[in-house]
Simulated assay, not measured.
Amino acid sequence: MLLPRRSFNGRTPAVTSSGSSRLRLTVNPELQEQVNLLSVAQLENLAEALLDFSNEADLVTWLDENSNQLD
C-alpha cells in the first residue's frame, strides 16, 4: 500500500513501500547530518515530535530549537 505523497519545499519526497504502512522520506544531507549528531535523548525526543510534523520546515524548526541543548 502506498501512502499519499507530501511535498517538501516544492519537491516530492522519495517514498517507498515494502508492504508495510511505513512512510519513508528522503531529507537533504545537511538535515541528515544534524540528526546524526543528536544524542540518544534528543533522538528519543525527535522520534516523538516527528508524529506531529507535517513538512520539512517542522524538522528544521525542531532542530534549530533542540540540537544545541545539553542533555
Rank of each mutant, 00 (worst) to 15 (best):
E65W: 12
N28S: 12
E48I: 13
L23K: 04
L46D: 10
T26W: 07
A47Q: 14
N36R: 14
F8D: 03
E33N: 12
L23I: 13
D58P: 01
N36M: 09
A57L: 07
N68P: 01
R5W: 06
L38F: 06
D52E: 06
R6N: 07
D71H: 11
N45W: 05
L51N: 03
R22Y: 09
T61N: 08
E44M: 15
T26Q: 08
A57S: 14
L70W: 05
S17T: 15
V60F: 02
D52P: 01
Q34N: 04
S67T: 04
T16E: 13
L3N: 05
L3K: 13
P4D: 09
A47S: 15
W62P: 07
G19Q: 02
R5C: 00
L3R: 11
E65Q: 15
E56W: 00
D52I: 02
E56D: 08
S39L: 14
N45I: 03
M1F: 02
F8T: 00
F8R: 01
S7Q: 11
P4M: 03
N45Y: 06
S18N: 11
N66H: 13
E65L: 14
L38Y: 09
L59P: 00
T26I: 11
A47W: 00
W62T: 03
F8W: 05
L50R: 05
A49C: 03
T12K: 08
N45H: 09
L23M: 12
W62E: 05
D71A: 11
V15K: 00
S67P: 01
L31M: 13
Q32I: 03
Q32W: 02
R24G: 05
F8Y: 09
E33W: 06
G10R: 04
A41D: 09
L25N: 01
Q69S: 15
L43D: 13
L31V: 03
E33D: 12
P29Y: 13
L38R: 10
S67Y: 00
S21Y: 12
P29E: 09
S67H: 08
L38P: 05
A47M: 06
T12W: 04
E33M: 15
V15R: 00
S21A: 13
G19Y: 01
N45V: 03
M1W: 04
L50W: 06
L25Y: 11
L51Y: 04
L59D: 04
R6L: 04
E65M: 12
R22N: 05
Q42D: 07
S20V: 05
T12H: 02
Q42M: 10
L59Y: 03
V15T: 13
V40I: 15
S7L: 08
S54W: 09
D52Q: 05
A41W: 11
Q69R: 12
N36I: 03
